[in-house]
Design a protein around this nucleic acid. Sequence first.
DNA 1: GTTAGCACTCGATTGTTTGGAGTGCTAACA
DNA 2: TGTTAGCACTCCAAACAATCGAGTGCTAAC
Lengths: 341, 341
Amino acid sequence: MLNERKKKILQLIIEDYISTAEPVGSRTIARKYNLGISPATIRNEMSDLEMLGYLEQPHTSAGRIPSAQAYRFYVDSLLEPGALTDNDMALINSWFRERRRSIDEIFQSTAKILSRMTQNVSMVLANKSDTAVFRYMKFLPLDDRHAILCIVTDDGNVDNCVVEIPLGMRPEELDYMAGRVSRLLEGKPLSSISETLLSAVHTDIVEDKLLFTSLLNTINKMNRKHQQQRVFLGGTKQLLSQPEFRDMDRVRDLLGILEEEKVVRDLLLAGEDSGLKITIGSENKFTGIQDCSMVQATYRLNGQVVGTMAVLGPTRMEYSKVISVMDYLHKYLKTIFQQEK
Amino acid sequence: MLNERKKKILQLIIEDYISTAEPVGSRTIARKYNLGISPATIRNEMSDLEMLGYLEQPHTSAGRIPSAQAYRFYVDSLLEPGALTDNDMALINSWFRERRRSIDEIFQSTAKILSRMTQNVSMVLANKSDTAVFRYMKFLPLDDRHAILCIVTDDGNVDNCVVEIPLGMRPEELDYMAGRVSRLLEGKPLSSISETLLSAVHTDIVEDKLLFTSLLNTINKMNRKHQQQRVFLGGTKQLLSQPEFRDMDRVRDLLGILEEEKVVRDLLLAGEDSGLKITIGSENKFTGIQDCSMVQATYRLNGQVVGTMAVLGPTRMEYSKVISVMDYLHKYLKTIFQQEK
DNA sequence: GTTAGCACTCGATTGTTTGGAGTGCTAACA
DNA sequence: TGTTAGCACTCCAAACAATCGAGTGCTAAC
């Protein structure tokens, strides 16, 4: 175990490196922070810390930089949960107020704020729950040959689809049919309304092939919409301001990965179970981001996973700031979602 | 006016520079392309072309690069409309087939293909027409205190909103109210249903304040949706492969601009009138992209602007390729949209 | 255990040299 | 008169060398 002084020195080195991105030397530590010990002593301690795997030297005569192990230790043991400054909070509040119409926009804003505050790429996965239950369906007349098929779910959502009315069918017949189908499907979760169940509807009630296909389509559409998981990215250009991404090729690789929505989704889903998850360097199993760190927070509402947000950046990341921003956003989202429900 | 030989030399220089991104010298031209004249002669011609403003020298002992004026002349007079290779066409076809569900996905694919084929940033603006006309509204019951307000437009679109039913109001009353409002608003374009017109509805028919606000909201929502112009970006990371964007700061600036959807929209709208528009360097009035070129094509269906697509890149751009790709995509979209209608 | 002192290392910076690609000019040629 | 070979000249880029300084490790003294 590290003694207190070693811990202190390690912490200072990490924090100095996080803010300057330059290898830290013993003199720097001695000069900047008043520890009451000489550079030589610090050098000895640093040498020990290097032996123990916490520090690395880019080359013989450079300062030292924290290893992945050091960051791990830092976030586990040294990190002090710092509060956001009032300024930051005000900034977040104003950004959120900027536009807040639909759910999607809220998520998009979240991603934007997260990236702006942390100077890193942010990812937000919006997990729509799939608990919608079929309530009833109805036809809204359009013209002689067309009507709008509306399907209403429990949670007050409606989806619709224009259908062609079979020749010779009267509005009352349509209404009657809608009523019968509704009675049959009412209370069933959308996700459970499979083709097999519908086939009963088909043979019994909706004889017209085209009409039936429309019904099926609309249900499927709603289903998809309900369990859709949308990914929102923020501040990919922030990458360019990080010195570790001076190298264009690296940036391009990473942007390529981020451009694949599926990959990002998988990445986020992988860490969805725990509340706050910090992955440092090669702890992450996804190829291409193994020299990055990721801080991910999953938020729930009544036990259900509503979404997850993450910040992806160099291992040299302001973990403390990232965590407090996420924490604040988390609370913010919570109130918003509770209002919505 | 330039004589044939000057034109030929200018063309070769431009095309060589486009493909190599290196200043072109007289020797290169003489060696690569068999013009039957010596480097010295070419030098003389180049000197003339520089006098005339078509060429520039980065420094005394370098080759020459085309000026904006040269590119302008090139696209106006020298450009030969080259057809796409079979390979390219096959590639486009396969990418389009990849996924093609919704309109949005088609636009997104278009942006993606455009950027991949041209190695530049692409922008696609999907212009939804705003000709929807109010048809009728209806309430779908939900529970004792809530109903879904549906508004149906001519083109078969429905939008909805959950409303709270005023205490003590019976379903028949709701239906009656819906009928009266419908009769009042029927046939009016959504865009023309302003607050003033609605206020008549308010005082005359819908007495409940909350109900009225919901009605207003839904109409506004539909309105927005109808005249929504969505912007799709493609291949922003392509920027990084262009040598003129070696400089991180420049990339960041440009990405910053592209991230602002509003700016991109304005940019695209500005060039929407003409069929094919090529803007070179400072011809573009938008700050921040004045050292870039943009090729923009607007596509119409029955006279109506459906959308516009553009490629943004360095002035050293493969104009010929860009144009032929756009042309092909244009035809592709045309068939797709004609099917849809 | 701590620290001052010192030799040593090595990247970054700066200066210098060299090579080559390219030009412009001139004189000769068809 | 237009074309071309020849040549001196320019200037960037790459290669190389010298220097600087931040940092280390080690030793000896406190």
